[in-house]
């Protein structure tokens, strides 16, 4: 047995097992996030939301999945066939790839890589290829407009997002996500990075909403202006893949915000009463809270005008993050660093 555990086959097999352990709950989470979204927005708008399939609508995601699987995938006459079908895959694969570096507990990750922060930033930016290629390959003006908007928005917000992560990197002095969480241990709620890095926390979370193309930054879909944007020509499972990718990215952004700014798997108050609860519970609770904020924001704010999105990204977020990087840099050279470390 020990001989087998040292072979390359075992390494491959073990990686596959870990991937399945992460991806299956993730896809279930995506399915039930769609239900949660419809329920939460329903209650905010004084409706009931889905309540016919299963107990109070609890089987609605399963019904939706079966419906989407049996629908026909229609390919427009003049579309570029290959890229039209490749685009949903290009959107979905990066949404799963980022999970390779996410730590779920001390040392619990598919890959505890040194440059984890850089990896998630690099891979998370790739999802936009699915949107751009979909918009181009559909050969439809609305899809194309959606793709153009998505590309411009991504470039604007990725810079602000990168700067926000530079701040975290400066304070934690490591790119390893597990070590970033461990650097926030100690005083519970008050020692997490959301407090000293508050501007980064806000900028990162809002840029995360923009990068996942969620309301109020969902101009790439913008159903009141460009019908449904980049996925207007899609149907059936090809359409479903875009949605799976979007919701998986929402969960990812919430989880990464938790890891970087909200202390990951640590309990909010350092008392024996709360510490015995396993870290994964805290991690998922914080993630669920941020996901609720995603839905809350969607139900509350009207869609941004396109020029305002660009203005917010380039003229507000980037200067704010640069200024706060300078503040953190100065603080790290003075006795104030005791607060940050």
């Amino acid at each position: 047995m020990h001989d087998f555990q040292n072979t390359a086959w075992w390494a491959v097999l073990w990686s596959l097992i870990k991937i399945i352990i992460v991806v299956v709950p993730l896809l279930l989470g995506v399915a039930y996030l769609t239900l949660a979204e419809r329920k939460v927005i329903g209650y905010i708008q004084v409706r009931l939301g889905p309540n016919r399939v299963g107990f109070r609508g609890s089987l609605q995601p399963i019904a939706d999945a079966i419906k989407l699987m049996f629908k026909e995938v229609i390919i427009p006459t003049n579309a570029n066939r290959f890229l039209f079908l490749a685009a949903p895959v290009l959107a979905f694969v990066p949404a799963l790839l980022v999970w390779a570096a996410i730590p779920f507990g001390p040392g619990v990750a598919i890959s505890n890589m040194n440059a984890g922060l850089l990896y998630v930033l690099a891979i998370a930016g790739l999802g936009v290829y699915g949107i751009i290629v979909a918009g181009w390959a559909s050969n439809s003006k609305y899809a194309f407009l959606g793709a153009m908007r998505a590309a411009a928005q991504l470039v604007a917000y990725e810079i602000a997002m990168g700067f926000a992560l530079v701040g975290v990197l400066m304070v934690a002095q490591t790119l390893n996500l597990t070590k970033i969480v461990e650097a926030q241990a100690g005083g519970g709620f008050w020692s997490w990075y959301w407090l000293p890095l508050f501007p980064f926390f806000l900028v990162y979370f809002i840029s995360g909403i923009a990068e996942t193309n969620r309301a109020p930054f969902d101009v790439a879909e913008g159903e009141s202006e460009i019908v449904a944007g980049f996925h207007v020509e899609y149907s059936g499972m090809a359409f479903a893949l875009f949605f799976l990718a979007e919701y998986a990215n929402m969960i990812f952004v919430s989880l990464l915000t938790t890891v970087l700014f909200l202390g990951g798997w640590y309990a909010p108050i350092n008392t024996p009463l709360l510490i015995w609860i396993p870290g994964i519970v805290w991690l998922l609770l914080k993630t669920a809270f941020l996901l609720y904020v995603f839905l809350w924001i969607r139900a509350t704010f009207p869609r941004y005008r396109y020029d305002q999105i660009m203005r917010l990204g380039w003229k507000v977020f980037i200067p704010v993050t640069i200024a706060w990087i300078v503040v953190v840099g100065v603080a790290l050279e003075t006795p104030l660093r005791a607060i940050l470390r």
Binding site: A115, L121, A122, I123, A152, V155, E158
Partner: peptide, 26 residues
């Protein structure tokens, strides 16, 4: 050299090529 590899993806694939594609499609 994981830093160089990831920066290559981040800068060239994540930003530069998106803009290239943006222009080429137009």
């Amino acid at each position: 050299a994981e830093f160089l590899g990831l920066i290559l993806i981040l800068v060239y694939v994540g930003a530069v090529m998106v803009l290239f594609l943006f222009v080429v499609m137009m």
